[in-house]
Design a binder for these strands. Structure first.
Lengths: 201, 201
DNA sequence: ACTCAAGAGTGACATTTGTCACATTGATAA
DNA sequence: TTATCAATGTGACAAATGTCACTCTTGAGT
């Protein structure tokens, strides 16, 4: 019997998946949670063979849970199950050595198939995800530029930004000018839109 | 046997729910789709007693599907099933006389229960939703202000906005000034953040 | 050793933005 | 029947923003 733990904050999907997986003759759902913290604790206690983790959950993301679990348990099989084909998420997942990264845009039988596959040692990345990642344009913004962009995305003025990042007023303006030129825009709002579209934030 | 159609664009939830509902002895899933257009056509053809509609779907939203269905069929029971407790969505749903509005933050047995309840003539609104709606602050922005806000949310300059909405440069600036004062902010980006937080867009 | 990018800065300039005061019109609520 | 509000507009002012040109330092790569 393959023991599985499910961490998914959307109740409807959580309860539906629990039921579906439990119907499989060789699967046993040993527990489920709707937030990351509870999930982490219970997985440590229950020691399932497989943990299915959503990324965006309250209290702790699935990626953080994965990271913590990998520290104390090298063998547990981890499946990230998320809506988002985001480069950042995927990179973090890979560096935490998850065994599979699936999108919720796949039907349940793909999930069932994946569970069997990773048990035989394979690593599965959703193909739709991989093509999205490959076609994603690379972030041309430097660390500082990104930092400053995050500041003005909150609506801060140049003055306020210069204070919170400890840079001169002029320097901040130069960075913003550079951001605008790299995004091919002429205003902060446009730049933010471009950054969001390309997942640079 | 109660015939049910399911329109839900997230494959994982779609397939999981189809399976779960079909397990109920008195339910029969007669079809499902992952976009609104297909859903509308098939519902018209298949004439199920109940249609479960997600809101955010490709091609046509669940709310639009509901509207079209109500025009040609007064009797079909409609259930809106969505992630979002948004006032706009809810108001639109009510005006299209849906029989239930559920959040995906409820477990599957609530959905099953709801189906039975609406068949006996009841109308069900998720309680979490209702309290969210009641506590939602009312949009203080006028139509014009909203229109102009949508323009500058795309990053347009005052000049560009004045051209696309056929208003003088000065008038647009007055509207923006008024938006800033109503949102209690001093910049467009801040105003946008406030509007997003309060669901005024 | 040389080049290049990132980081930090100054100064100057033209525009854009945000703010105010004020005015007219039409609809609507008290 | 007044107010009040939305919609529209002008003019003027101060501050913020975006752009350029230039400088300097440091670290990484060729």
């Amino acid at each position: 019997m393959i023991t599985i733990y499910l961490a998914e904050d959307q109740e409807m999907l959580n309860s539906a998946l629990s039921a579906i997986l439990d119907l499989e003759t060789d699967f046993k759902i040993v527990g489920s949670a709707t937030d990351g913290q509870t999930a982490l604790q219970q997985i440590i206690n229950l020691q399932p063979e497989i943990a299915i983790l959503d990324i965006e959950m309250p209290k702790m993301t699935g990626l953080e849970v994965a990271k913590q679990l990998r520290i104390i348990d090298q063998d547990i099989k981890l499946i990230i199950l998320t809506t988002f084909a985001r480069k950042n998420y995927f990179e973090s997942a890979v560096s935490n050595r998850v065994n599979a990264y699936l999108l919720k845009d796949s039907p349940t039988d793909v999930l069932v198939g994946t569970i069997h596959q990773i048990l035989s040692g394979k690593t599965i990345y959703d193909s739709a995800l991989v093509s999205t990642i490959l076609s994603a344009s690379n972030n041309p913004l430097t660390k500082q530029e990104l930092k400053i962009m995050k500041e003005f995305s909150q609506g801060k003025s140049t003055q306020e930004i210069s204070k919170t990042v400890f840079l001169s007023y002029g320097t901040v303006r130069n960075y913003i000018s550079s951001i605008l030129s790299k995004t091919g825009t002429h205003s902060r709002i446009e730049a933010l839109n471009v950054a969001k579209k390309n997942d640079w934030m």
